[in-house]
Design a binder for these strands. Structure first.
Lengths: 224, 224
DNA sequence: CAGCTTCATACTGCATACAGTATGGACTCC
DNA sequence: GGAGTCCATACTGTATGCAGTATGAAGCTG
């Protein structure tokens, strides 16, 4: 009989997080990986059958994505996967640049050594998956590095805004890993990022983050 | 979430926007104006009766506010109005500073003369309400000036992020207008902002915006 | 009297039925 | 033959019923 005070670790056994949140995560994955293409309508009953839930939690998940800007709600037509224009991508990357450079400066000042080590570990894992040309794993670790750096800033509002905008770009970045040369460039930029962070050189980190995001626009622009 | 422009005109012609959106707006007002105090639970049936809608659209509105960070969703307890800590306010203002300074620089470069004139008109109206010590109207026009400057940047993602974070601070700012001296300072800073914008001096605008937001933290900090 | 257990209540979360509306096709008229 | 109109269909938006759970009070025990 296990003691019923599971407060600390939450090894996530029995406690299921809210169903709509789970559905929203699965929908996000479907969008970033392209099973739900930009412009596609989200047919509620079809998705209900596919995901094995009822309409109410599914609708709530769709509204959540709408709040994040991933889907658009058309009256009497429901949700459609938002189609990013080139301007949308440029706008989002402009904002991401402002947010990440701020986060980089804050992180260099506020991060713990353990936190920096965690980022370095994520980066190392990413390099490993790059060497193996494991695109999906590389992609996820890449995103994780950016998210971790922002988290190190200790600013929750910053993390929130960054996460929401990053989610909008995920699909583009997911399909944008093609091109050996561009890929190598991106990896090199990440290398610089981690080095600057380890040295706690906020200005250098901000600079390379800005460069990285500017180049990201070049990398994804041909895809639109 | 569409950036909230429906404060001045928009007398709601024939086309009624979606019911949940309308309910969400009314809930936002209840929160910013304090009828729903921080920490208060959102009783669904009670609010349904008060607003004259059924549970489904009300629930959707509550989830929308949760997505914006105004309320927190506790499992099996529903929505509670989020209580801002001092750190939350400082974090949000830090991000707002990054966003608004960016917007200021972009606006000076991209705005049309008509757009700048619109901001000046809003500012003039605000001065008028300040002279009359009409706090509610002053407050709304103050927010409108900030929103309008951000809109002039032409960056929709920027406007989205700014609007969401600004909404979180609305209640604090609403109750934070007390103090004749602080109020006069804020008005003077706005004066500088509009002057810099009219001169299309992006650096000066960014600088005064940063100062304004730093001082906003000082102004609202005693309220937490 | 204090603390624990038990039970009634009320509220949230989910499922489903119903109504309103946009869409696509077929038929008719020019 | 082409265009306009009418209608059937399917899907969204809303309302409501039902089940699970947290909460608070009352009763019981040490």
């Amino acid at each position: 009989m296990p003691p019923q005070t599971a407060d600390l670790q939450d090894d996530g056994p029995i406690i299921r997080q809210s169903l709509p949140a789970e559905v929203a995560t699965r929908l996000r994955d479907l969008i970033t990986q392209g099973q739900l293409a930009p412009g596609a309508r989200l047919n509620e009953v079809a998705l209900c059958a596919q995901l094995g839930v009822s309409r109410t939690p599914l609708r709530e998940a769709v509204r959540r994505l709408a709040g994040e800007g991933l889907v658009e709600l058309v009256p009497a037509r429901g949700g459609v996967v938002r189609r990013l224009t080139l301007k949308d991508a440029a706008d989002s990357l402009t904002v991401l640049k402002a947010l990440e450079t701020l986060a980089g400066r804050l992180a260099c000042a506020a991060a713990t050594e353990a936190g920096i080590a965690d980022v370095a570990a994520l980066h190392a894992a990413m390099l490993d998956r790059y060497a193996a040309r494991d695109r999906l794993a590389y992609f996820k670790l890449n995103q994780a590095v950016h998210t971790a750096i922002v988290a190190l800033s200790g600013n929750e509002t910053l993390a929130w805004a960054h996460g929401a905008i990053q989610a909008r770009m995920k699909h583009l970045r997911f399909i944008g890993n093609a091109g050996e040369r561009k890929w190598a460039d991106a990896v090199a930029e990440h290398e610089e990022m981690v080095r600057a962070l380890a040295a706690r050189d906020g200005e250098a980190l901000a600079e390379v983050l800005a460069l990285h995001l500017d180049r990201t626009l070049d990398r994804v622009a041909p895809l639109i």
